[in-house]
Design a protein around this nucleic acid. Structure first.
Lengths: 193, 193, 193, 193
DNA sequence: TATGAATGAGAGTTCATTCAT
DNA sequence: CATGAATGAACTCTCATTCAT
């Protein structure tokens, strides 16, 4: 209904990011060619290069926009006392972040090999470790199982998103169940288990 | 001398699989070219095609060899009563399988996007679901959290492998800690939590 | 402050030529992109097209400005008697022209393949032949060696510029030595050797 | 007459070098695309990559074959006494080398900007300097003009090839004239002029 | 006097794959 | 049991150029 090329002006950069993430998540980073992205947008490949310096740059730019909430969460977490309440809050907020940026996290989950040699991947790993640092206690007496529980909580949340995608049931209910289990894991760890 | 090309006769097929898995795990499936594999083996690309029909075929053959233990485990599990002991045994044996074929599972973990459109990937996913089916009870009254706990157990074991790779501590100890947490999760699920 | 964009007004055309010649001489014509030129000037590529019709046009314009002295020299030379003194004067003045427009001549020296299919290149070659015509005598009895000596004189002057650039010694002294040899070559030619 | 694809087997590498040099000399290195080379040979671009690792590698391989005579000449020259006879012999033999590999030297002459950032170019420059070192005397009292005469001799020979290409007269006669002038220049230099 | 946005053509390069020998 | 030679399709990326604003 008239939303043709007119409305597109000025938002091309954004549209590239959207379509790219869509395809990256759908097919993987390596298997998605710039030709595909361009075709789906009905622009030329060269147009992509007007807005982004390289293919990797497209991906990076998507991350930059979407990982800001995580950085804020980490910063906030670092300033809080290491209480169980803090940890619960971290997980709760992280669960929301995950939900809001689901395609991006699905992409990461499924393209770890690719992420590994992208600068962006490296920095994301650092963020995860920072979150882990907040969840677990630095006490050297902390048993190994407690550490396992903590990363298990994180993994459960990440994995849950797209595993339960296929399962039946209300998405919101599923999300809450995942969060609940994650919180429980961290709670046990907090109590030294 | 003597360990040169002489000894190599006849085991080329095996050597291709070894090197291929090594590289696939290291760099990802898409980013590993047949040229690289051939070069590292000091044979020509064409030689690979004598032993395998396609690139995908190399990967598939590796899986065929290595997933047999899982199939046996599933078959065994299906015939057992759905007791907690059975589930514990499943997890314990699965932990060993994972350890024995670590590079392969690391590969799967990091190349999910690739796995998705390989026939092999599909069938592996089926195996995972079969395992899940044994771990969780089919009772429709089973709460969602119980289901989450089950796949969380599986995810924890998968993820643990290469997350704890970087962490300090004795590998065997780490493996046991992971298994312990996984069993606990399934136990809770078994009790309807 | 004050030497910023303010002072630049109106001399953009000149600045483009300067930067372009700089880069053309440094990297060659083909390997210098308009993007580079624009970036170094902190303007957009499109701005270049406001001032010049094509890339080649930029180069041509530089030549037009800088080859005028040569045209004047040729014109002057044609009107003079073909004495040895005239030839000496030609070489002396040409040596000065070369020194004043060193980057341009370095560019030509090193980009002959490019020059060949530029209209400008063709016309420059004509100029060289015109100079040669003045230096050598048209007498059909002139031995081949005399002709060789004449173009050798020209070549020596051209090549000297950037060969001796690396050598040690005072630049002005080197220039004089080159001129001296060139004059000697033409002198010998003039005397029929 | 039956010299179709049959005869071509096994000499593809050589044919690529031949055609490449032909085109490089004709149009310049940058302006010659691999597509052109491939088309003229009636093979695909990929075939070129079977025989050579990169475009630059094609050029390098041509040089490797053709500069061997120069290396031998330099080696020979270094072992000789620095007499005038030696220098004359150097020039004479160099003149023959130049004639035999005329297209290559024409290419170098006209693509100096390109040569400059090729490893091959660097090493060729070294060879020229080595030749110069033999021609000129290391005596610090040697006047600048003597040095100029020496490189002028070399330049004259290089330049002569393709300048006199257009001129009228017997090629062999022209070559001899050039050689004569070059020898004279070096002779004068040798006598301290 | 310039810019922002885009294009079409083409570059060099790599890939999985084939097949006669 | 393997190689040498080649292909076709695709890739990422760069270029000179255009044009409405």
């Amino acid at each position: 209904m008239g939303t043709g090329k007119q409305q597109r002006r000025g938002d091309t950069r954004q549209r590239i990011q959207d379509v790219a993430l869509e395809l990256f998540a759908e097919q993987g980073y390596e298997k998605t060619s710039l030709r595909e992205i361009a075709e789906r947008l009905e622009v030329t490949k060269a147009a992509l290069y007007y807005h982004f310096k390289t293919k990797e740059d497209i991906l990076t730019s998507i991350f930059d926009d979407m990982t800001r909430p995580i950085d804020e969460l980490i910063e906030w977490g670092k300033e809080q006392p290491r209480t169980l309440d803090t940890k619960r809050a971290i997980l709760t907020r992280y669960s929301e972040i995950l939900t809001n940026a689901a395609p991006l996290f699905r992409f990461m989950q499924e393209n770890q090999a690719t992420m590994r040699d992208l600068k962006t991947g490296e920095s994301f790993k650092d963020r995860m470790l920072a979150l882990l640092d907040i969840l677990r206690d630095d006490d050297p007496a902390t048993p190994m199982t407690a550490q396992v529980r903590c990363f298990s909580a994180l993994f459960t949340m990440h994995g849950g998103m797209f595993v339960l995608k296929d399962a039946d049931g209300d998405p919101e209910e599923k999300r809450k169940a995942i969060l609940e289990v994650a919180i429980e894991l961290v709670t046990q760890a907090h109590h030294g288990a």
